[in-house]
Amino acid sequence: MVWEELRFQALLRHADDRLVLGHRLSEWCGHGPTLEEDIALSNVALDLLGQAKVIFEQSIKTDLKKRSVDDLIYFREIRGYRNVILVEQPNGDFACTILRQYFFDVFNRLWLNSLQSSIDKDLSSFARSALKEAIYHERHTKSWVVRLGDGTKESNERIQEAVSVFYPLSYEFFAQDEIDQKVFSKGLLPNTACFENVWKEEVALTLLEATLQFPKRTSTQMLRGREGRHTEHLDRILSEMQSLARAHPGASW
């Protein structure tokens, strides 16, 4: 793979994570448990979509096929999507959404923190501003994880269930292949292996504070979103998200 393509593919992964997760969160708009939280979730969704936008814009600079951001979002097939499996999971109840988000927020904060020292000036300055958003996201979701975990019996059971479903999926944040390793070694993107343990320790402390049990570690064999091997959930997201744009090919909006 030539460097341009490597760079494009590596950035696409992180843009897709944010696009898909932002899309999922936007499904809450108008349906939150309170007006306050409805607004809070939309804020996070807007931040993630904004982050996705910047990363997509950076990625297409080296797209050999010269696609636009909207081409990538609206006209790419499911096999071309490179997000982790975790972010395409359905929202479920508020506990599921919050827990999935918390796992991502910790990862995002660590990733952006490290991206600040990218050799690419545009990426490092993006990281500095996005990091501020990520710090708040984590503060928000972490306090909900603790509230729900240490709240009522019902809320504890709901978020415990979310932990057992989502924790195993979180390993994919740290899975690495040849593409990742090449962009790490060039100093373009962070080496996620460097903060895998930090992620685990911080999450463990939060779960402890939230009186939640840790699930057993499982195999990461089947987590292959980075290769474009997704669950049916992403298919449903894309058929909805792309429906209008695809019904009018060539139209501008």
């Binding site: 607004i39 809070a40 804020n43 708040y136």
Partner: peptide, 20 residues
């Protein structure tokens, strides 16, 4: 104004609602 169960929740909601 807003509704929240405690001070941290209130502070975050204030940020999300009134400081956009």
């Amino acid at each position: 104004s807003l509704r929240a169960s405690g001070s941290e929740e209130a502070l975050q909601a204030a940020r999300d609602v009134y400081a956009r």
